[in-house]
Amino acid sequence: MKNELNRVVIISGEGEIGIIEPHTGRPTKRAVMARLTRERCGGDRWAKAIAYVDGTEGFDVETGEVADWIPEYNIVIKKS
């Protein structure tokens, strides 16, 4: 995984409901991981980050697994 990330979105929330917003900080893995830590509020919330490679295809910043974001539906799906 690269340390320099292109377009990144942060998905965070409580329970089943979350929001998707762009990461506007520095485009590094360290900055994104720090943002996820803040978003999680010590375990009260969940958060994940998707870095885009092309179009809506990208990868989960923490795990490196391939992931897609469908903006029309505001959902994140994993590719099998």
Rank of each mutant, 00 (worst) to 15 (best):
V9Q: 05
V61K: 02
P71W: 02
A51N: 03
G25N: 04
W46P: 01
I77D: 04
D54N: 04
G18D: 01
R45F: 10
G42V: 02
I10R: 02
E65F: 11
R38I: 06
N74A: 13
G42H: 09
G25C: 03
E16I: 09
G43K: 02
K29E: 08
I77Q: 08
I20S: 09
G64M: 05
I10M: 15
V66Y: 01
D68R: 13
R30D: 15
S80V: 06
A49G: 06
W69N: 00
E65S: 13
T24R: 14
S80G: 14
H23Q: 06
G58N: 07
G58T: 02
I11T: 09
S12R: 15
E39D: 08
T56W: 03
T24M: 07
W46V: 08
K79P: 00
R35M: 11
T28C: 11
I17H: 10
E39K: 15
I10C: 11
D68Q: 12
R35K: 15
G64C: 08
T37R: 12
F59A: 00
W46G: 12
G15M: 11
E16D: 15
K78E: 15
R30N: 12
T63K: 10
V76M: 13
Y52S: 01
K79H: 10
K2H: 12
R38V: 13
V76K: 12
F59H: 11
V76P: 00
A51K: 01
A51H: 03
A49P: 00
T28D: 12
M1L: 14
E14F: 14
A67Q: 14
G25E: 05
K78D: 07
E16T: 09
L36C: 12
A51T: 00
E72F: 07
K29Y: 01
E57Y: 03
E62Y: 04
W69C: 06
I19A: 06
H23S: 03
I17V: 14
T63N: 01
E14W: 03
T28F: 05
I11V: 13
R45C: 13
D44K: 15
G13D: 05
G64V: 03
R7G: 04
V76W: 00
G25M: 01
F59D: 00
V61E: 02
L36N: 06
E39G: 00
K79N: 08
A67P: 00
V66M: 06
G15P: 03
M1G: 14
W69D: 07
G55I: 05
V66H: 10
D54T: 03
D54C: 07
T63Q: 04
E62T: 14
E62R: 08
M33K: 13
I50Y: 09
R35Q: 09
Y52D: 02
A51G: 03
H23G: 03
I20Y: 04
E4S: 14
R26E: 15
I10F: 07
I11R: 12
R38G: 05
A67T: 10
R38T: 11
D60A: 08
K29G: 07
I70Y: 13
A67S: 07
N6V: 02
